[in-house]
């Protein structure tokens, strides 16, 4: 129907109606282009995880294969690098979130001397270039003759994750209703029981968010790790080494896997939120 109507219309009218459409939706069209630009490199990473490269360089599309996924650890060193990254990310996010949550609780719920100084202390690592964080830790360990390896990586990751954990938990604690805690105390619960039965369940989503954020930052970190890893190899360090001679498609496989897991986690979260707001508005 519309096609017939369109052909009977004079040409100029179609053109002007197209122009009107474009003018009306220019922001939407631009945003779509923007998202295409944003997602293009990701699409490349995913696509090239299925590439069947003939030489050393995984740059040109040669043909489709499942082999890179089937033999994801077919490249020497990649398996141990992935497991080291997972181990570090798990431990670093647990410790940093615990330390960060405690700081956030202190900042939001207590008045004390030195609040401003504490805020600055949290803000400073976030506003220092990563290379300076990595370099200064390196000089510390060098001067104290510390052996570089697992522990130095872990210490570094906890250090740069703490501020992120504090900021994340703090953001959700601000709207926290303290009357609930007071009610529990009035009913005879002591501080520890109140914390466990009232406070902790209420701030659990914030803690979970901080854990996930720290995990993601840790598993992705290259610069600070590069300065403090010694001869250990995390996954990003493996990619760096491999890039010099041409990264194998298995690198794309791991990259895609990390991406898919992280995005599905976020997606579930977003969908739950959308449902809630929909239920609340309808």
């Amino acid at each position: 129907m519309s096609a017939v109507a369109a052909t009977t219309q004079p040409r100029g009218e179609i053109l002007s109606s197209i122009l009107a459409f474009v003018r009306h939706h220019v922001l939407t069209l631009y945003s779509l282009l923007f998202f295409a630009y944003l997602l293009l490199p990701i699409a490349i990473v995913v696509a090239f995880s299925f590439n069947h490269p003939t030489g050393n360089f995984n740059y040109v599309w040669q043909g489709f294969t499942w082999d890179n996924w089937r033999y994801w650890d077919g490249v020497p060193g990649i398996r141990s690098a992935v497991f080291l990254s997972l181990e570090i990310a798990l431990l670093a996010s647990l410790v940093a979130t615990a330390l960060g949550t405690m700081i956030a609780l202190a900042l939001v719920r207590y008045g004390f001397r030195g609040r401003a100084a504490t805020n600055i202390m949290i803000f400073l690592p976030l506003s220092t270039p990563e290379i300076v964080l990595g370099a200064s830790l390196l000089t510390l360990f060098l001067n104290l003759n510390v052996v570089f390896g697992f522990w130095t990586i872990l210490i570094a990751h906890i250090m740069f994750c703490i501020s992120f954990a504090v900021v994340t938990v703090k953001a959700r604690l601000v709207g926290f209703d303290r009357h609930l805690e007071e009610a529990a105390m009035d009913l005879g619960a002591n501080e520890w029981v109140t914390f466990r039965k009232v406070t902790l369940p209420l701030i659990a989503p914030a803690i979970l968010a901080a854990l996930l954020l720290c995990f993601a930052i840790s598993i992705d970190d290259f610069v600070v790790t590069y300065f403090n890893a010694g001869s250990e190899t995390t996954f990003p360090l493996f990619v760096w080494g491999a890039a010099r001679v041409g990264a194998p498609p298995q690198v794309n496989v791991i990259g895609t896997a990390i991406f898919v897991i992280a995005v599905s986690g976020m997606l579930v979260n977003v969908l739950i939120q959308m449902r809630r707001t929909r239920a609340a508005t309808s």
Binding site: F35, L38, L39, L40, P41, I42, I44, V45, F48, Y59, A216, I219, D220, F222, F235, P236, V239, W240, A243, A247, V251, N252, I254, G255, I258, F259, A262, V263, M266, L267, V270, Q273, M274, T277, R278
Partner: peptide, 28 residues
């Protein structure tokens, strides 16, 4: 109500390892 989903698109690059997304630009 699509806000959160669109924001997820904005941060999507962060979920690809920094070095790998830079290597993707090398390909592009």
């Amino acid at each position: 109500r699509w806000k959160n989903l669109l924001l997820l698109f904005i941060v999507a690059p962060f979920f690809v390892t920094y070095l790998i997304r830079t290597l993707a630009w090398e390909t592009i």
